[in-house]
Every structure is written in structure tokens, then in C-alpha cells.
Amino acid sequence: MYNFEFKQPTTISDAVNLLKSDEAQALGGGQTLIPTMKQRLASPSTLVSLTAISEMKGICKNDDGSISIGGGTTHAEVASHADIFAGLKTLAENIGDAAVRNRGTIGGSLANNDPAACYPAVALSTGATIVTNSREISADDFFQGMFDTALEEGEIIISVRFPVPTSSSYQKFVQPASRFAMVGVFLSKFADETKVAVTGASEGGVFRWSEAEAALNENFSADSINNLSVDQNDMISDIHASKEYRAHLVKIMTQRAIKGAS
């Protein structure tokens, strides 16, 4: 790994200031960034750890019923919190392994936007709002493709605000080696609409399967998507799954999510 200067600010403003320097990079739980740096694929000159910023941690229920989760909150904390809705709990419980869940953070996961990460699916499916040090970004605008987000240089995720669906389900088909999602489908059922977000499958990163949503808004049943399919051409192909198989799994996992949320 290349060397760097390590900084661990305790306030958001200090962190933001430190991130203004050239080639500074934010460090969340490090569960993706540190392995990347070991391969010498990233070479920040300054690493600004966000883990000592207490105002970025914790989970709370807002007056409008939504839930806010601090960007520095670990997956384990999310998984074990009483106020978390079912699908999100399942999702957090199944990220990586126990040790990874004790370090990895929601903010780090969303900022990285790995095409196979789980958190982008729940954020997009629930229509979450990503709150940064400078603005609020809706999930629909936040995810901009594989490893690409609306975050500006030096901008950090302070918290994420999730509208709470009336029912939800996350169905993850794991890539057996990495345990990331080979296909993960998060379905959120709200009073007025259903949203389906798919991770792990697409070259473009997490996406909403709008045809399935339309069908489910019409008739919320697993059968209502029987004749639908996602475009294979957009799917990822690798040694674990072809485009065709991933497209098939998107449908199967969506049907399971429908049943799971019924």
C-alpha cells in the first residue's frame, strides 16, 4: 500500500476542511477501500477517517415517520436497531460477514456505489434522501452508474433518510465467493406505490425496474410480472453468471420479494 497521512477529525466541518486538500479521500469503515489500497489501486495522499465523528452515527425516527441513519453507522448497528423496517434489517444482517458488519458503514457503502452492494438497493427502492454536508440528494438522482454517484469531490454523506414502507423485502442471491449480491432485489410497498430496486445485476449499477413497478401498482402479486423481463443486454456477465442468468434471477428474486412483502 502507498503511504498517506491519516487524519481522524471529530466534527463534520473539520472533515470537510481536511477533504479539501488535494488527493484527500474519506475513509468510512474501510472494508472496501483498504483492500483496494492493498492492491495499490488507490493512492490518496491523505485519508480522512469519518469514524470518530459522533454526529454521523446513530439511528433515529423522524417526526414524519421516516428513519434517519447516520452515514457512519455500521451495518451491525443497523441490523440490530429496533426501529428498522423488515427489509432493511434483512439487508443489513446479510452484508459481508460479522466482522465486516462491525466496521462497514452505510455512508461508505452508498458513496462507493459498488454495483453489487446491498445498500443502494434499499436507498433507491424506498426513495431515500442522501443528506450530505452541503445538500440533500434524492436516491433517484444519487446513483449515477457503477461506482459513480452525485457526490462532489470532498462531499460526505452525513445521514440517509428512509421513508418507511408499509411492507418490504430484500432478496439477495449471493455471489458465492465474494458474498456480494449476484442479484439483489429490494421491494418497498407504500400506500400509494411499489418500488423495485435491483442491485448486482446491471452494468449500470443499481436500477429501478419500472416495468415491474407498473405491473405491481396494477396488481400486487408475483404472477403479475410473469411476462416481464429485464433487458439482458444491460446485465453484467462474469464467471459466476451470464447476462441471461442474471436477467432470470432478477425476475425470480423480484417474485420472491413480492411474496416476502405480501
Binding site: P176, A177, S178, D238, I239, H240
Partner: peptide, 28 residues
């Protein structure tokens, strides 16, 4: 069920880490 060492046609090792080479885990 799980393990396959894969080279592509250019001879690049695709299953080059535990991210892509599936080691049997306890739950498997």
C-alpha cells in the same frame, strides 16, 4: 459445487482471489 480456477483466453487468471474463487464456508 464451488471451486473453479478460471483463466480467460488471454491467460488472465479470473478467479484470482477469494472474491472470485469460492472457498467452501461453514454454511455451504
Amino acid at each position: 459445487l464451488l471451486e473453479g480456477c478460471t483463466y480467460n483466453e488471454d491467460g488472465q487468471l479470473i478467479s484470482a482471489s477469494y472474491m472470485d474463487y469460492t472457498m467452501p464456508r461453514a454454511a455451504d
